[in-house]
């Protein structure tokens, strides 16, 4: 399997974990640890002014010294808002330029707005950002985003937080075949088998949040995801057998005690 290299850094773990929706920072930290991930996503929001100065912040728990912090543009519906958010994120993270771009269409489906996503990608790439872009599972759009210069294409498996898994495996496979940059399935994973399937299809990684954070036991699920991604990755490399419509015996036909 090819190495996963993002912004000139090689990643051993192919899991990128979101840090939203956990019970508290302790649970976040433990889930991140159990997942074995090396990159985590964060959201950029107004500071809650008036909170205790000494209460820990997320980045005290998931330290930028230890993890690659991937700021997202979640909640942005226009390219302008997304670019502004990325610039704030870069200032916040001492000039780091790696971002997860997501520009949404509407709050009901959370489906990517491809037109605004393409626009924002162009602006961000020109500004020198390394763009990991969340998009639809449309192979043509993926190719366009690659041409613009995105670092990594992140098609949805299904809607954000839906847990429906990978709805269109054929499109994901098509995207992988038609592009050179890393392909990471982002959104839709419900349980470990979904992440495993993404890897079996030949994806370079999987990004998830809700499937882990909202599991009954997030820390155990984080560990399950780690193993599922490793299993899927190995299975892809090993090469699966062809599917047949008829049974093919695995024991020899000869030498049966019933033979006369």
């Amino acid at each position: 399997m090819r190495k996963l290299i993002i912004d000139n850094k090689e990643y051993k773990s192919r899991l990128i974990l979101g840090t939203g929706k956990y019970k508290d920072f302790e649970e976040t930290g433990k889930a991140v640890e159990a997942s074995g991930c090396e990159m985590v996503t964060v959201a950029i929001r107004r500071l809650n002014i008036g909170q205790d100065k000494d209460s820990p912040s997320l980045l005290d728990v998931v330290s930028p010294e230890k993890f690659t912090i991937l700021p997202n543009t979640a909640g942005c519906y226009t390219s302008e808002d997304a670019v502004r958010t990325c610039e704030l994120a870069s200032e916040l993270l001492s000039g780091k330029m790696l971002v997860k771009l997501e520009v949404l269409s509407d709050s009901k489906t959370l489906y990517p707005n491809v037109v605004e996503t393409l626009k924002a990608s162009e602006i961000l790439v020109k500004k020198g950002f390394k763009v990991m872009v969340y998009t639809t599972d449309d192979p043509i759009v993926a190719k366009e985003l690659e041409k613009i210069g995105c670092e990594c294409i992140m098609p949805l498996g299904s809607a954000i937080g839906s847990g429906l898994g990978i709805i269109n495996e054929f499109n994901i496979r098509e995207i992988i075949e038609n592009t050179e940059v890393p392909i990471i399935v982002d959104a839709g994973v419900g349980t470990a088998s979904d992440a495993c399937i993404a890897m079996e299809l030949g994806c370079d990684g999987v990004l998830m949040n809700t499937a882990v954070a909202c599991a009954k036991n997030p820390i155990l699920m984080a560990s399950a995801m780690k193993h599922a991604i490793e299993a899927g990755s190995k299975a892809y490399e090993a090469g699966r057998i062809a599917k047949t419509l008829k049974g093919v015996a695995s024991s020899p036909k000869d030498g049966m005690i019933t033979d006369e």
Binding site: T19, G20, K21, T41, A43, I44, R45, R46, L59, A74
Partner: peptide, 10 residues
């Protein structure tokens, strides 16, 4: 004035 920070997100 906007003062922003990083919080949990996916």
């Amino acid at each position: 004035i906007e003062i922003i920070t990083a919080i949990g997100g996916g």
